[in-house]
Design a protein around this nucleic acid. Sequence first.
DNA 1: TCTCAATCGTTCTAAATTTCACGATTAGAC
DNA 2: GTCTAATCGTGAAATTTAGAACGATTGAGA
Lengths: 205, 205
Amino acid sequence: MKNISRKTVDRALIYIRTLDHLIKEKRYLVSSKDLALITGISDVQIRKDISNFGKVGRPRIGYKTAELNKTLKGFVLQENVVHVALFGVGHLGTAMLSYPAFNEDNIKLVAAFEKDKSKIGKKINGVKVYSVETAPKIIKRTHADLGIIAVPASHSQEVADIMVLSGLKGIVNFAPASISVPKSVSVKDIDFTIELLSLFCNNLQ
Amino acid sequence: MKNISRKTVDRALIYIRTLDHLIKEKRYLVSSKDLALITGISDVQIRKDISNFGKVGRPRIGYKTAELNKTLKGFVLQENVVHVALFGVGHLGTAMLSYPAFNEDNIKLVAAFEKDKSKIGKKINGVKVYSVETAPKIIKRTHADLGIIAVPASHSQEVADIMVLSGLKGIVNFAPASISVPKSVSVKDIDFTIELLSLFCNNLQ
DNA sequence: TCTCAATCGTTCTAAATTTCACGATTAGAC
DNA sequence: GTCTAATCGTGAAATTTAGAACGATTGAGA
């Protein structure tokens, strides 16, 4: 099997999202040019990405939406449902618990953890809120794969340590601070401030 | 002046965030190796990035935190305060309005827009909620530079069109759908589902 | 049947980015 | 004052990524 680059996988996830949408609209065929118009990714890039997963297109016709979607999902998702644990049930954490798209996709929030005792024991959108101390036990029981840090930056490292200890293999970190984790754990940082400033600095001046 | 790449600018924002933190801790000196340990970016990369902005380090010593911070900010932020308009005051939008880091940084949420009439006219965390129809007028009056899409995917294109019409030059799009905008407007997509699946696909299998 | 236009898939080229290697500089120890 | 170890800054090599060019394939229409 080919070695498929991280960027290709990331774009494949965009193609899958787009195809899901097209299929819902009863669209049966789509060309790389169509996908380029929708996604903003060049048609050449799209064809090259797709060719990593086999020859599923037909010249003059394009791709069958359902077939392409199935092929892409077969490679990148493999029917997996990703189990995710959430740390921090403040405004952002609550927004994640209420995020409607997770239900349609291959993502399941299996547990939430919080320091504030008044929130512990409650259920939000079907997800139970536990004390942070119980995280290792609960995470093993629920087979969580990934974790989300939605606590203040002042506690993000502390929470990251617990996540690593609990055996999580990937972390989405919303706290505006770098965290240190072993190489075996991968981290994706999303700092709202930096995202906005990056847009501003890179394009407006 | 040198042509500084987008990736360098993005990393510079991480250095600035880190330096802000170190300065708050009364740390006066930092080496590229120290910064590498904290941020996870290689020390060579850090030195090369910084060298874009001049020779501010001293061999054997490292960088003065305050001086380096000032230099970096001078290049990438230039004392600007970025004015941001928010579209959608649901769970995620409310989380953005309550996001504490914006106040410390160079970001000011100047207005929020919402369809739901029961929310219009209220003030959340000092930010007034307006009807979406009034966006062009309010955005011009408040001199907003960037916008945030925090509405459901079903309405994201509609909202994006209004943002473009209102003169916003950059958009952070949290809706899980691609939006089409003129080339002059830059877009940063943040799809929580894709972020999680990307972590999972790229590292766990 | 033949031609044509659209589209895929692939190879080669170019650009961007990171990593490596190493010289230059400096503070401190002796 | 000299040596040493740490650190910066930079030019070159290597890697990754995107882009361009182009042949191959296919369905439709004359």
